[in-house]
Write a protein that binds this DNA or RNA. Structure first.
Lengths: 339, 339
DNA sequence: ACCATTGATGTAAAGGTTTTCATGGATTGT
DNA sequence: ACAATCCATGAAAACCTTTACATCAATGGT
């Protein structure tokens, strides 16, 4: 096979006429070695095509320069965009990223712990919203590696979180609707049990109150964030005959449901109703009318999370327990002026 | 920190009252060790919480049980769905996956080679459509690890490929249009230089010929697979006044462009024109009318590719130079009966 | 001219496995 | 009853680094 033996540090040492310790130093701490020998070593490295064996290195140094990313669904577009940021930052700092798709299956979560317990990964990025199943068992808390949560915070655990500022984003979104003359604005997707939904509703309420508008409970509809829930919510409002001029939806999927419902009723959008989403998922620009929404800075979230984690790995203690990045208003065609 | 020393194989051996060799065997080749000692070892493992140090293991065995996935854009939804399959299969077989986002940057590609040359990965999955920059240089071909190409084949290199059967898929798609009574069917997205486009065009032609229809060159329009190219192609056909009853588009993005163009002209779809896509990307079910298309079996592609690679790693020689999986016809609302 | 300090290099240990080879006891066949 | 075989186990080498410590020469200060 291709197992043509690779050059080791000894080969380099022999060729350069120095000891292996010197070679190691020449590579890792160039200042600690004399100019002349450094050159000899560099040349020998080039000639042998030597690259340091990461396994031996990791074994000796007890760190792998690898980060494990645990996510419930790797296929989720939300995940993949954050992944770009995570990967970019890690790679820039000489780390590799390992991915683990848990599918919310406890046994798979436990399975991935071997990467940690076997020293194959130094740190953990959690997309799952909870500690991996199997941790914090049998009092052995000390085994927890440095971790950072992304996308969803981990409740009841001291895990720093990096994500979008849902409250501020929802507020900006609602204020945008208000600035377009809307006074009766619905909130679709209330779910007090879900942190994300709760914060977005809070931002919505704050914006209304701040503009001197009253919050009408009949305009706040429950929803679990799916397209279907958005459709159902819109239908419900027609049945109840308590109609807004604008729908602020907890996310784009919900907004799409509302849009489908209104289109089916042949309303002229955005003339008769405005729709505002949150997230800016991929199809938001393709639907008709294209969706005005709040864009999550996903790449930057990934970068910030990885930066935080690598800092912790280097011994820094995180200054904040969470880092919230601002969402950006993307104006498209689903919001119009009222009146 | 959490560096509370982990249990080693020696701790287990001491507790079980056997040698470390026996412990290793009890874990890795249970049949080679007596029933009684095996139980002692198992218990000692449980009590110490021992997990084998992957670094030491990899160092000794000269394999890491890691696969490196090199992709130009990790954020691409096409990638992430295949990734699910890759990851699932790898994990099932005890392998981990490492991801590398190259952004088509040669220096980044070269950079990731260190994972190979430093023994951090045993095999390579290529999404890039070409060998990583820096390989096959200086005649050192032997350094190439086992590789499998996915998504895009690697030209001029002996790399097995796993992907969708574009020819058969395009043929099925076209035959579906024919079955709905269409006789004047356009092909949007001709690009003979691109393998994917060429094969899909070929499938289209074969279906027409097979049904006794003539191929009208005026109905075959160039395009690079972008939404804009689809829009432009449709406009061009109106200008030329050589109109089909159905548009078979090289991919969904192109189909979307056609759909936008026709919608803007206020045609009633699919009554006046039918549109067929290829790929089944995420928004295809959301546009109006929702897109009839060929679905790529992405998860299965990932699984098949990983299965092939792991087989090669185990010493098998791949039987075929490529594995083509069938695309599945997804009937939605953009194709209607003619007449 | 001598001692103390600095700076560059080398020696050897440690990191935790897997696996070859040797050893000794038990089993089998005649 | 004895030789031949087999089976379970142990000792030790090998995998390739990094780094604490030792060594030795050169430099600088008095």
């Amino acid at each position: 096979m291709q197992q043509q033996k690779l050059a080791t540090i000894e080969d380099v040492a022999a060729l350069a006429g120095v000891s292996i310790a010197t070679v190691s130093r020449a590579i890792n701490e160039p200042t600690k070695v004399a100019e002349a020998t450094r050159r000899k070593v560099t040349e020998a490295v080039a000639r042998t095509g030597y690259t340091t064996n990461a396994m031996a290195r990791s074994l000796r140094m007890r760190r792998s320069n690898m980060i494990l990313i645990l996510a419930p669904d790797v296929g989720d577009p939300n995940f993949s965009n954050i992944l770009v940021g995570l990967e970019t930052e890690a790679s820039k700092r000489g780390y590799g990223v390992l991915i683990g798709n848990t599918q919310n299956d406890p046994s798979r979560e436990t399975d991935y712990l071997r990467f940690i317990s076997s020293n194959q990964a130094d740190g953990l990025i959690l997309f799952t919203g909870h500690l991996p199943f199997g941790y914090g068992q049998d009092g052995n808390e000390t085994r927890l590696p440095p971790m950072v949560a992304v996308n969803e915070p981990v409740p009841n655990a001291d895990v720093p979180f990096v994500g979008v500022d849902n409250f501020a984003g929802a507020r900006i979104a609602t204020e945008h609707l208000i600035s377009q003359g809307h006074k009766r604005i619905a909130f679709i997707g209330r779910a007090p049990g879900r942190e994300v939904n709760r914060l977005r509703e809070e931002g919505y309420r704050t914006a209304l109150t701040g503009a001197g508008l009253t919050v009408d409970p009949r305009l706040i509809i429950d929803g679990d964030g799916t397209t279907e829930s958005g459709r159902a919510a819109a239908e419900l409002m027609f049945v109840r005959d308590a109609l807004p001029t604008a729908f602020f939806c907890v996310n784009d999927a919900t907004a799409l449901g509302v849009l489908i419902s209104l289109s089916a009723r042949h309303y002229d959008l955005p003339r008769q109703f405005s729709i505002m989403g949150f997230d800016d998922i991929s199809f938001s620009s393709f639907v008709s009318p294209s969706l005005t929404t709040m864009k999550q800075p996903r790449t930057r979230i990934g970068e910030a999370a990885m930066d935080l984690l690598l800092g912790m790995l280097a011994g820094e203690t995180p200054k904040e327990s969470q880092i919230l990045l601002r969402a950006e208003l993307i104006v498209r065609n689903s919001v119009g002026r009222v009146g």
